[in-house]
Write a protein that binds this DNA or RNA. Structure first.
Length: 330
DNA sequence: GCCTTATGCTCAC
DNA sequence: TGAGCCTAAGGCT
């Protein structure tokens, strides 16, 4: 269930564990991973991560594309594989793995802790296999299809590859030309890739930006500031399986490590007091996803809301949800 | 055990 | 714009 930070972390781990090695690539028990035979037995050359997409390069025209969607996840381990589980299961396994005696043989682990500097805490030689469950996509792309995917993705704050998906100017230009709300634009992967619902809400709060502000009304310096902030925030992304976006000075505990419930300023904190001003955090269904914000720190001016409503750019889904009787802001 | 919710995306209409 | 797909955890009865 990842945003871009998690994708890049998996890419780093799978690079360490599998690149340069021949892999057994196994389909799930019901054979929904129909492309497995195309890469089975081949040497993995490189693992790419752009936005929320992973690309396992097995040859110049052979990429295994993985998108985890909202539910996909990996489990890693050494020794024997666990029993099949789930509708779509794919396994990358080192050829010949599981034959050697290991101290942790047969113990799968789902390690998700990163060190503070973003490095990974366990030696990759302990990983024989990884199991993928519940992805939105797990299929083989040729080079043209992979390139087409890259072409439609916006810059990724965590991408530093030659040829670059890390030039934010394209994103600035697009945002500043649109009437759509910044809350929706930040989630648009063709504008910025790798940002998901948590980082959207948290970045907007951190920069005190009203989610309903039309893109064209956002100041360029604010966009630059958001981009600059997003890089360390995404890099620091995972701490004990949690995304932490609060600064120490704003945490009620004042502790260096966020306690449970103080990882986020606004995300899933609706009905609770803002850490900064005490105002009650609101939520609203926007374009099918739940948006959270502080109505005081992220001032909702009547003018901005009126504009958003009039243009029908940001609150359509919210109004539709209200019609259906679903809960909106508390 | 059932229901709701969740870090996403595509496609048909 | 709504439906559909996929898994898991937590709250409730």
């Amino acid at each position: 269930m990842p945003e871009g930070n998690e994708i890049h972390r998996w890419a780093a781990r799978h690079t360490a564990a599998f690149v340069g090695k021949k892999l057994n690539v196994l389909p799930g028990p019901n054979h929904r991973f129909i492309d497995a035979h195309l890469v089975d037995g081949k040497k993995l050359l490189k693992v790419h991560a752009v936005g929320k997409h992973l690309g396992y390069e097995f040859g110049p025209d052979l990429y295994l594309h993985v998108h985890l969607g909202r539910f996909g996840d990996f489990t890693e381990g050494c020794g024997p594989l666990p029993e099949p589980k789930g509708a779509l299961r794919a396994v990358l396994q080192r050829a010949g793995a599981g034959k050697k005696s290991r101290s942790q043989k047969g113990q799968p682990h789902n390690l998700t802790c990163a060190n503070d500097d973003g490095t990974q805490p366990f030696p990759p030689e302990e990983v024989d296999w990884c199991e993928l469950r519940g992805p939105t996509d797990c299929s083989v792309y040729d080079a043209a299809k992979w390139q087409a995917l890259l072409d439609r993705l916006g810059p990724d704050p965590l991408a530093h590859e030659p040829g670059g998906h890390d030039d934010p100017q394209r994103a600035y230009d697009k945002i500043l030309s649109k009437k759509t709300s910044i809350g929706e634009l930040l989630m648009d992967q063709s504008i910025l890739s790798g940002i998901g619902n948590i980082y959207r809400a948290e970045l907007l709060f951190r920069h005190r930006l009203n989610p309903f502000t039309p893109g064209e009304q956002v100041e360029l310096k604010t966009l630059k500031s958001i981009w600059k902030d997003s890089i360390p925030l995404l890099k620091a992304g995972m701490v004990d399986r949690r995304i932490v976006c609060t600064d120490r000075k704003d945490r009620p505990s004042g502790k260096a490590v966020a306690e449970r419930g103080e990882e986020h300023y606004v995300y899933r904190r609706h009905g609770k007091p803002c850490f900064v001003c005490g105002e009650t955090i609101l939520r609203k269904d926007v374009a099918g996803r739940t948006l959270y914000w502080c109505p005081n720190d992220q001032q909702t001016t009547n003018e901005q809301n009126d504009t958003a409503y009039a243009q029908g750019t940001s609150l359509r889904a919210g109004r539709a949800a209200e019609k259906k009787g679903r809960r909106s802001a508390p």
